[in-house]
Amino acid sequence: MNSSQAAFSYAQPLQLTGMRVLPEHIDANGHMNVGFYNVIFDQALDRFFTPFDLDWAYVKRTNLSTFVLETHVCYLQEVVEGDELRFTLQLLGHDAKRIHYFMEMFHAQKGYLAATSEQILVHVDLATRKSCPFLPEHQKLFAAMYEGHSKLPKPPQAGRSIEMGKK
């Protein structure tokens, strides 16, 4: 993490563009297959983490990584081959070893919310395969990010559980 990122204001969720629905993401229904939503959210997270030195170079250099503990995806409107996507990331909580975040996937041109993914991940020492604290600079980053993001409205899909409901 460089000093300009440490001073960055987190008054809004992080933004990411430049991803697209690929032909291999499409299923027999002619839209992105359910499994690829998780894949593309994971790829977006990797891109969000790159400027904060939490990407694959960090894993190779430190032998530390992150594992997702839980995820909840809401599929709101379909996307199809060639659609450009835009993502946001809002930090909902953090401690020394974990972060809780919420991602949104938008159709980049039409602007509609296509899907959301709420996740909790844990920092892991790959040598022991056990959780461990984030490095101090990452803990400071998440504290600063949360300071800003905690003032934002909680996304309506965040914290939901799954059930059919009563009729």
Rank of each mutant, 00 (worst) to 15 (best):
I26K: 02
A28K: 09
D46G: 12
T62Q: 09
F48I: 15
N29A: 11
N29Y: 14
G148E: 11
L64D: 10
H123T: 07
S161D: 04
F41I: 07
Y10S: 05
Q119Y: 00
Q90S: 05
N38K: 07
Y75T: 01
N33F: 07
K154H: 07
N63C: 10
A96N: 04
R20P: 02
T62D: 01
M32V: 08
Q90P: 11
Q77A: 03
Q109V: 04
M103N: 05
K167T: 07
L121N: 15
F87Y: 10
P153H: 04
K130A: 15
V68N: 03
V39A: 02
H25S: 03
E70S: 05
A115W: 01
A96D: 07
F142D: 03
I99C: 05
Y58E: 05
G18M: 03
V122N: 05
P51Q: 04
I99H: 02
R160V: 01
I99F: 01
K166Y: 11
E137T: 15
D83H: 10
G111M: 08
D83T: 12
G93Q: 10
K130D: 13
L121R: 15
D27I: 03
Q5E: 14
A108R: 15
E137D: 13
M19C: 07
Y58V: 08
A7F: 02
E70R: 06
S3Q: 14
L91S: 04
P13W: 03
D46L: 12
Y101N: 10
M164V: 05
M32A: 09
F67Q: 09
K151G: 00
F36W: 09
Q43Y: 00
S131Y: 01
S131I: 09
L121I: 13
T17Q: 10
P23L: 00
C74N: 12
D55S: 04
Q5W: 11
T128K: 06
G148N: 12
V122M: 15
L69D: 04
K130G: 08
G159M: 05
K154P: 01
F8R: 15
L54C: 08
D27Y: 06
A144T: 13
C74G: 07
D83L: 09
Y37G: 00
T62R: 03
E137F: 13
K110E: 11
R129W: 07
E147K: 09
G165V: 03
Q157S: 01
A6T: 13
Q119V: 04
T116R: 05
I120M: 14
L16E: 06
R86S: 14
K110C: 00
N2F: 02
K154C: 11
V122T: 15
A127H: 10
T50I: 13
K151I: 00
K167P: 03
V59E: 14
S150R: 11
Y112I: 00
E163W: 10
K110L: 10
E147S: 06
K154S: 06
A143C: 04
H72Y: 03
L45S: 06
